[in-house]
């Protein structure tokens, strides 16, 4: 399998595939971050997470169209507006869903799974009705197109670097929010001991709603970033949902560090294997390995001690 490549070829393959893996890692991390916050905080399985992501992607698509026709001068910067809009739209929808649906089901986690699946079907059909069944892509501003030539054999696409930079920023932002702000302290208090947190005066319902909105909003940003590396269709969200759940479970729920570590290991394994084997075999081996490890270590890579 390795015989046909020279050493320099191999090292550039590893760098290039490693980089492709990093882009996958970025998208996975962004998606899994939102899910990990929601799952870790409330034990709620949000099967519609992929659809929140796609909402962000469609927002970006609309924004790109709007800027192209009405504000061509500002087109190079539209992406930042789109991202903010994606966050707000997905976050607002998330809070609405929490209020209408999720809060009635906190005592029945398995039922939230079914209800949010129903929600995802409805959203998918809504996207299909509004945006049509075909996949749409966004027009990238010129400064995001092209790649940086590092050596003769290694070149790195700019849009990939941009996605990675965004991931880095968002992750740092979430870490700051969760571990350095008053809101983060409240969230962590509710995770560790809900009745006690309520007793010291934290409005747990409000914290739940904001956390759910935050998780969905981050999914929206993930979708926005996703438009730069792939096209968006009504069912794109479903393609990623299982991987994302596995990442969260594999990393150990309620642990941001674990989520990042598991997103990293899963995406790197998959993209490296993808080069040598067919795409589907690589995926099967990766998923099987994750399920196998989870059977041996069900609590995931990193765990947080929680009093229940």
């Amino acid at each position: 399998m390795l015989g046909d490549y020279s050493l320099t070829d191999l090292s550039s393959i590893f760098v290039m595939q490693g980089f492709a893996g990093l882009i996958l890692f970025s998208v996975y991390t962004l998606m899994a971050l939102g899910l990990a916050i929601i799952f870790g905080q409330m034990g709620v399985i949000n099967m519609a997470h992929g659809e929140f992501m796609i909402l962000g992607a469609y927002m970006t698509y609309l924004c790109s169209g709007f800027f192209q026709t009405h504000l061509p001068a500002l087109f190079p910067a539209y992406f930042f507006v789109a991202m903010a809009l994606a966050f707000v739209a997905s976050g607002a929808l998330g809070m609405l869903v929490e209020w209408a649906l999720i809060r009635h089901l906190y005592k029945r986690p398995l039922d939230t799974l079914l209800a949010t699946w129903g929600l995802s079907l409805i959203l998918q059909q809504a996207y299909r009705t509004i945006f049509g069944p075909r996949e749409v892509g966004v027009e990238l501003p010129s400064w995001l197109i092209g790649s940086v030539q590092v050596t003769d054999t290694i070149e790195i696409p700019i849009n990939g670097m941009f996605v990675m930079a965004i991931t880095l920023l968002i992750t740092a932002g979430v870490a700051l929010l969760m571990y350095r702000s008053r809101f983060g302290a409240q969230v962590r208090a509710v995770v560790q001991n809900r009745p006690m947190a309520g007793a010291v005066g934290i409005d747990t319902e409000k914290v739940d709603r904001l956390t759910f909105g935050l998780g969905c909003g981050i999914a929206g940003i993930a979708g926005s970033a996703f438009t730069m590396v792939g096209s968006t269709g009504p069912t794109s969200g479903q393609l990623y949902i299982v991987d994302t759940f596995l990442i969260v479970v594999f990393g150990g729920a309620a642990s941001l560090l674990g989520t990042i570590a598991s997103a990293f290991s899963i995406s790197q394994t998959q993209s490296t294997l993808e080069f040598f084997l067919s795409g589907s075999t690589a995926k099967v081996i990766t998923l099987l390995a994750v399920v196998g490890i989870l059977m041996l270590r069900p609590q995931g890579l990193f765990t947080l001690k929680v009093r229940r």
């Binding site: 034990g43 399985i45 986690p109 398995l110 799974l113 299982v242 759940f245 596995l246 479970v249 067919s278 589907s280 075999t281 995926k283 099967v284 998923l287 099987l288 994750v290 399920v291 989870l294 059977m295 069900p298």
Partner: peptide, 26 residues
């Protein structure tokens, strides 16, 4: 035996369904 249940079990069975589909299609 490792006391995995509830939502974790649901997610893992779902992953197994995904794996089998990819395997059959591939």
């Amino acid at each position: 035996r490792r006391r995995v249940g509830g939502t974790y079990f649901a997610i893992i069975t779902q992953a197994i369904a995904a794996i089998l589909t990819i395997l059959i299609v591939g």
